[in-house]
Amino acid sequence: MIESVLNPSNLQAIWLTLKLASLTTLILLPISTVIAWWLSNTHSVFRAPISALITLPLVLPPTVLGFYLLILMGPHGPLGQATQALGLGSLSFTFFGLVLGSVLYSLPFAVQPIQIAFEAMGPKPMEIAATLRANPIDAFFSVALPMARSGLISSAILSFSHTIGEFGVVLMIGGNIPGQTQVLSTQIYSHVEAMEYAQAHWLAGGMVAFSFLVLFTLSLLNPRATRVLN
């Protein structure tokens, strides 16, 4: 039984999913830290619109995001024309297309925990660092970031797990290519649709167990990190 579940195509989907989630998390962490810092410190008039824009993927159905990405990345879309002009071809149906989709889709989940951590910290620690003659960049790395540690960890967990669970966007822009865009969630869907329930059960059950283990371990290691989730 287990041999049929761990067939090359399922293994490839598992590996691809982990790769996608890791890469997305790596890209999201620095971007989200910068955005979160700006959002928690600025008094600019653009704060509200930018904040709303970043939160959009949270409320939009993934199909909306996927549909617009498909059009944007297509040969007639602005993004597609830009990537073609750069000689990269079109991003739809490629792994990097999925990375881009995942980064956009998980952005609010990555920004919010960090922003909450920065806001909870308040301006005091940075002001004290300044009186001790730390320059702002030094203070940011040696005071603000360590203090926002739990927010950063939550952000990483959420980005990673949210990307693993991503489905609608992948379905819309992926094209189900083995080794390129065929990830776990679409693979499970495909098994269910084809009535291969045994395979679907193993993969889906494995995903539930994996997600639970990740969240459980992290809440043991760092009780504050998962508090933001609730």
Partner: peptide, 20 residues
């Protein structure tokens, strides 16, 4: 060069949007 839609409606969308 094959890309797969989940159903025939989605396949049409891939072609109509010129992605394929």
């Amino acid at each position: 060069k094959l890309v797969q839609g989940e159903n025939i409606g989605q396949t049409f969308q891939f072609v109509a949007s010129a992605n394929a």
